[in-house]
Amino acid sequence: MRDDEFDRLVNDELDGVATPAQKAELARRLAEGEAPRARYQEIQTVFGMLDRIESVDPPPSLRGNVLRAVESRARTRPERGGLRGLIQAGFGKRPGLGLGYAFAVGAVVGALALAIGNGLFDRAGLRGPEMQGALLPPTGSYVDTVHLAAKGAQATGEMWTDSNGIVSVRLEVQSVGPFEAHITFNPEAYAPVSLRRVEPSGGRFDLRRGELQVEDRGSARLELRLRAVGSSRPPLSVWIGTSLGSAEGRLLPFPPNWNQRPR
């Protein structure tokens, strides 16, 4: 007798979760003949083999390697997630304060926009005001596209440039949950001019020397405009990440398919 129900009874018994009624039923089935007893033994063998495998100590170097890597990241990106982390920490696990959290995020974004509008950013930062609304059709010449696919999110970045040395990066992200997107550029070669976002969803953006960081959920569209400083046009990198995975790509100012926008 090898039916599925019998196997489930044996599994529950060997797992230690069988109820008294299941135990009685199993005993009755086992008394029926040799076949159920043989099947019981087969399943027990699998359990026995699995239980003979012992837990293994992790290599001593694992802990040190992780902590060194974490230290290094904390040093190079000390503010990463800090502001949002502080806000979240303030509201912790209290769902009732979700509205407060949303308000706080909005206030932070508003404060940032005000700071930008008042020219509080230096040359390496954003000098023009953040704008919201529909993206205007791109001007100038199409340069390059990058498509990224991470677990739980995908993004497309497009680069355009004009004769005045303005390089526009248009980024569109679609995610099933929270995501982060970064556009990284050489601050010696590009100076931020403006950032335009479409359909603001209360997410957070952070433009600093050489990098724009966006934290949001769902979909997001934005355009970052940079002014090329000097004749050098190094590639820009675009990164997206979710809690499940990440993907990275580059936008090349002079790619092989220069000036031919893919259809």
Binding site: V56, P58, P59, S61, L62, N65, V66, A69, V70, R73, R80, G81, R84, G85, Q88, G92, K93, P95, P178, F179, E180, E215, G241, T242, S243, S246
Partner: peptide, 26 residues
């Protein structure tokens, strides 16, 4: 594979640290 397992876990911890702000505390 033991060496691969070490690499995987190291990478997982570092990613967890980097993405800790996306962790849903519920």
């Amino acid at each position: 594979d033991r060496e691969d397992a070490q690499d995987v876990v190291q990478s997982a911890f570092v990613k967890a640290y980097e993405k800790l702000h996306t962790y849903d505390r519920r």
